[in-house]
């Protein structure tokens, strides 16, 4: 179990590094899809099947396909590396990212993580009811307002995307 996790973790980091270093944006995108799949697997290991499913469906399936569409639409000769305008920026960026990483990692590596009180859904309950059923129940009871609002947000985004991307009539 643990070994599988480490494999997936290593693969996902590899995918992330691919995004960082691959030259061709399409390769970047495919590498990112790999990362998403790995993350989806880790979600399954964490008993979050629903999240894993939408991770694969929405992220790897929908969003990344959208990215690829756009890339293919635009990048006719855009695969070459652009000239860097400010090289010191690269070094600075590296240092800053390192700093942020150390801070975040230091959070849970320095000592034991202080977690709050346990919630009402231990693993047994989740397995008994089923994670999807639980999420569905919560979404349509406690989080119904957020759910409706997020629906409207999605609608607005769709309309906005159409309006923005539409070719202006000359």
């Amino acid at each position: 179990m643990l070994i599988i996790f480490y494999i997936f973790a290593a693969l996902s980091v590899l995918g992330g590094l691919g995004v960082l270093f691959l030259r061709n944006p399409i390769h970047c995108a495919l590498s990112l899809v790999g990362t998403f799949f790995c993350l989806g697997a880790i979600y399954v290991m964490l008993n979050a099947e629903f999240v894993a499913v939408i991770q694969v469906l929405v992220y790897a399936g929908a969003i990344m396909v959208l990215f690829l569409f756009v890339l293919m639409l635009l990048s006719s000769k855009d695969s070459e590396q652009y000239a860097n305008k400010w090289p010191i920026g690269k070094i600075l960026a590296g240092l800053l990212s390192l700093g942020i990483f150390i801070q975040i990692a230091g959070l849970f590596n320095a000592g034991e993580l202080q977690l709050g009180p346990k919630g009402a859904y231990p693993l047994e309950v989740v397995e008994e009811v089923g994670s999807i059923a639980l999420i569905g129940r919560l979404l349509f009871t406690d989080y119904i307002l957020s759910f409706e609002i997020i629906a409207i947000l999605l609608l607005v985004a769709v309309i906005g995307a159409v309006v923005i991307a539409k070719r202006r009539l000359q």
């Binding site: 973790a9 992330g16 880790i42 990212s97 942020i100 990483f101 990692a105 959070l107 849970f108 590596n109």
Partner: peptide, 16 residues
């Protein structure tokens, strides 16, 4: 901690 570390690594890669 290991999962969180993975999360931090991925996040930093994103920032970079």
């Amino acid at each position: 901690e290991h999962i969180l570390l993975l999360s931090a690594v991925l996040f930093t890669i994103g920032v970079l």
